[in-house]
């Protein structure tokens, strides 16, 4: 009987730990949001983070976005060949990119690139007692470390999503010109056709939520990293895995809320 119960106990423990983690993350976010007004006293801390995260992410996003848009165009042309006019290739690419591919792919790339880096940074700061040093000097780590990073993710993820979506549309255009024999005029007429402000707006709303998710999980797993290189490595892995799952789940919920 005990053997039979073991998997249930394991699952129950996992659920309990998950609920506790969600509670801790929510508490952490509330504490950080309370400190946001203090950003005006040390704006340089936030600006430094924005530059770091922005600059470090642009090359990777540049490549992934161009190729995402290009693949979207190729697939659309293949699926719709002979069924609809060519201009709808541009429409399909723009709709896919603005509503879905831009925000989610940018978020997934950033979860791997900067979410994991955040967990590693905070985990190693904890390991090297830098976090304790802040407290000993009566400096609030939530104000000086967490809040600038929170604002950075909150602002930079939407900004990078806009850049990424733009580049993806450009990627689609390039492949249309080079490989699909669709003119610039036809492609961009399609991009503008059926465009609604809601497409852009929903993508931006998603990217704001995604930014908060990536930050929360990166910071939380960094704070709870185990000892040594192994602990930091596990924290980065947990960040990427939990962020990818959470991003896709929240993507669905936002889509249901906004489009159903």
């Amino acid at each position: 009987m005990t053997v039979l119960l073991t998997p249930f106990k394991y699952i129950a423990r996992l659920i309990a730990e998950g609920i506790m983690a969600v509670g801790e993350i929510a508490w952490l976010l509330i504490q950080i949001i309370k400190r946001v007004p203090l950003v005006r006293k040390n704006p340089e801390l936030t600006i430094r983070q924005m530059v770091n995260i922005g600059v470090s992410s642009i090359p990777l996003l540049f490549i992934t976005s161009l190729f995402t848009g290009a693949v979207a165009a190729v697939q659309s042309e293949y699926q719709f060949r002979g069924l609809i006019p060519d201009k709808f290739i541009g429409t399909a690419v723009a709709k896919m990119v603005l509503i879905e591919l831009g925000p989610i792919l940018t978020a997934l790339v950033l979860a791997g690139r900067v979410g994991s880096a955040l967990a590693a940074e905070i985990g190693s700061m904890r390991e090297k007692e830098e976090l304790a040093a802040y407290e000993v000097l009566n400096l609030d780590p939530l104000r000086y470390l967490a809040m600038p990073r929170f604002l950075t993710f909150l602002i930079m993820v939407p900004c990078l999503t806009i850049m990424s979506s733009f580049l993806a549309i450009i990627g689609g255009w390039i492949v249309c010109l080079v490989g699909l024999d669709i003119t610039t005029y036809t492609y961009f007429t399609g991009v503008q056709y059926l465009f609604e402000n809601m497409d852009l707006f929903s993508g931006l709303i998603k990217s704001v939520v995604f930014g908060i998710i990536i930050f929360s999980l990166g910071y939380y797993h960094g704070l709870n990293a185990g000892a040594g290189a192994k602990g930091v490595g596990q924290a980065t892995m947990k960040t990427v895995v939990s962020a990818c799952v959470s991003l896709l789940v929240f993507d669905l919920f936002i889509a249901l809320l906004m489009f159903s």
């Binding site: 830098e130 040093a133 009566n138 400096l139």
Partner: peptide, 30 residues
């Protein structure tokens, strides 16, 4: 804590700041 200071085992310096900034940071904030 304002009346106490601590030297950590590995120094625990703020890696992203210069030596001068490490010393000045708390001073400036308080």
């Amino acid at each position: 804590r304002k009346r106490m200071g601590m030297v950590f085992q590995m120094g625990a310096l703020f890696d992203s700041m210069s030596t001068g900034e490490n010393i000045a940071f708390a001073l400036r904030e308080h």
